[in-house]
């Protein structure tokens, strides 16, 4: 097989190719469902119903999508500049730690100031955490993939130390959790009696902001240019180092805000299971969206639907909900491949 570049990419191919990849991912997981001894159609029906079947299911899906929009944006922005930030999970916890530090009584402000403050400190914490590997990359050419990955474990252990040690809430019956966020900092619910909270609106707002930033500003243009061709960008007089640093602050900041969103919106207090791998799933979200900030909204809702739907399916018919992770990983790989076939035409020799 040979790949030759397409001179003209038909518009419909940009949409059908990734969709086809997602369909293939579902087909692959259908084999796993068969192997588990369950009928395919009812299983997938249960999945769709569990994701969108009722007001409760729908709001739960959107609730889960909120942090995924943030981590998806974090990956999308960084990958645009070819900055391989795989540390979203650690940055998420850094954001949650900072928000816990400021939000549990250290400062008390009215809600319209308190909530932005929590997002700000979370973003700063996440951004600063990513700054460490990025400065190492710029100054010493230390590969950022491995350092960001390793920092995830360090941050999680640090949170573990705080929650079992100095930050442990004495009122929590011995559970490792921090004191609750004060009422002024809690993100209010959007739908009565449901868990969907204001954080979802914040996520959408930041997706639009990230899109506008990358699309219309000078700094955003530099991020794209550095990603496409750093030599050409440098030749055109763009500050490569400064651009990468800005990208890092933006990407780490977005991942940090995912932690704030979960903390102040859903849990109310810091625990060690505040994120079931949102940082890693964010990479899949970003790739499914083709690294487009607005596409991240759709793909985050889609992946959140898969996770919530798989939970419902596993309750209904004893299929392990790890199927959602398999489905996401398969979709990630297949969508990655499908993009190639948009740009190139496969030719059999």
């Amino acid at each position: 097989m040979r790949l030759e570049p397409r001179a003209h990419v038909p518009f419909w191919l940009n949409i059908t190719a990734p969709l086809g990849a997602v369909v293939l991912a579902f087909a692959f997981c259908a084999l796993l469902i068969l192997w588990a001894g369950a009928p395919i159609i009812p299983a997938y029906t249960a999945l769709v119903k569990g994701a969108f079947g009722s007001t409760f299911a729908l709001t739960e899906t959107l609730t889960r999508a909120a942090p995924l929009i943030f981590t998806g944006l974090a990956a999308a922005v960084a990958f645009r500049a070819k900055l391989w930030n795989i540390g979203g999970e650690g940055q998420l916890y850094a954001g949650a730690l900072a928000a816990t530090y400021f939000g549990t009584g250290l400062v008390t402000l009215p809600p319209y100031l308190m909530i932005p403050l929590l997002f700000l400190v979370g973003a700063v914490a996440g951004g600063l955490l990513l700054l460490v590997p990025v400065i190492l990359k710029l100054k010493l050419r230390v590969d950022e993939v491995v350092t960001t990955l390793l920092l995830n474990f360090v941050v999680l252990l640090f949170a573990n130390y705080l929650l079992f040690g100095p930050w442990k809430d004495p009122l929590a019956m011995g559970w490792p959790q921090a004191a609750p966020i004060i009422d002024e900092g809690v993100l209010s619910p959007l739908v009565p009696r449901m868990r969907l909270h204001q954080g979802f609106i914040w996520a959408i707002a930041f997706a639009v902001f990230a899109w506008a930033f990358i699309r219309f500003t000078k700094w955003g243009f530099q991020i794209r240019a550095v990603g496409y061709n750093p030599e050409a960008a440098a030749f055109a007089g763009m500050p490569i180092g400064a651009t990468v640093l800005r990208t890092a602050l933006l990407s780490g900041g977005l991942a940090g805000m995912a932690g704030v969103c979960e903390l102040a919106g859903l849990k109310g207090y810091l625990t060690l299971d505040i994120s079931p791998g949102f940082g890693y799933t964010g990479i899949a979200v970003a790739m499914l969206a083709g690294l487009h900030p607005l596409g991240v909204i759709a793909s985050a809702i889609f992946i959140a639907a898969i996770y919530n739907g798989a939970d419902a399916m596993s309750r209904a018919m004893s299929i392990s909900n790890y199927l959602a992770d398999v489905l996401t990983a398969t979709a990630l790989l297949l969508v990655l491949a499908s993009v190639l076939f948009v740009r190139f035409r496969p030719r059999l020799r």
Binding site: Y280, A329, L332, L336
Partner: peptide
């Protein structure tokens, strides 16, 4: 296919780990 080694690798890690957990859970529910 010459795709990004970073993203492919992360994808393989997610796929292999989640498949392992899925198979383990299905065989020992």
């Amino acid at each position: 296919l010459g795709l990004s080694q970073h993203v492919t690798g992360i994808g393989i890690t997610l796929l292999a780990a989640s498949l392992s957990y899925f198979v383990f859970r299905m065989l020992l529910p």
